[in-house]
Design a protein around this nucleic acid. Structure first.
Lengths: 112, 112
DNA sequence: CTCACAAAGTTCTTATTTGGAACTTAAAAC
DNA sequence: GTTTTAAGTTCCAAATAAGAACTTTGTGAG
């Protein structure tokens, strides 16, 4: 079964996952909550390929979670901002953050 | 960049995603919270292939989110149950559930 | 004018992951 | 003995992702 087939699953968790349930999508949403909004920002912040970012942003816009807004006429440029529907996703990211902070301490021994 | 490289990212959300940030893993966790615990239950409940379930369960056990418990000697059989660490993941799933219920109504027009 | 630069994508090829079905193992039930 | 059950594994084809280069539309410098 393909995961997109989950979109009309009886379970709301499954339906949500069919939309945002992949690593890069959720990372893009995290970035949005951190205030990022532009294509290249998502690329460098997440480390995903431009191809993936392009695809995921398209999906998020289609789903009404993000909205494309013009931030520059000539050259025409758009940025991506959270809609109300997108904002309401924050509890999920907060839950991820809390769990990660508690259970997955950074193991890098940086020589700062 | 591969998503597993996120495991020592500065961001706790990213670290969490490197572990559980894929559709099937989160769906398996949902099943655990619903009380399922056996291999074939996960297979039929999620619709993922046996291969994937096998891989994801292995990962979840390694991460200390699930625990293998013997439920039958001869034939030796194991079931998978949430650890404390796993239980603490519930806020995230609840957030997904709430969001899905509100924003992704089932669109199937079932004939009862 | 021409060259370099920037942002936001798109395209291309190669590598990795996933899907689906069949096979294995160990014991129980018929 | 043959079938059934649970929990995996293995195999190959198909889909998806990685990484780098290229495109488009315009700006600013020399």
């Amino acid at each position: 079964m393909k995961w997109t087939d989950l979109d009309d699953n009886w379970c709301p968790v499954a339906r949500t996952l069919s939309l945002v349930g992949d690593r890069w999508t959720l990372l893009i949403l995290r970035d949005c909550f951190l205030g990022l909004s532009r294509f290249d920002q998502f690329v460098s912040s997440t480390g995903a390929t431009r191809h993936l970012i392009s695809d995921r942003l398209k999906r998020l816009v289609e789903a009404g979670i993000l909205e494309k807004q013009v931030y520059s006429e000539r050259p025409k440029r758009y940025e991506y901002v959270l809609t109300e529907k997108g904002h309401e996703f924050s509890p999920a990211l907060v839950a991820f953050k809390d769990w990660g902070k508690k259970h997955l301490p950074v193991r890098r021994t940086t020589q700062s």
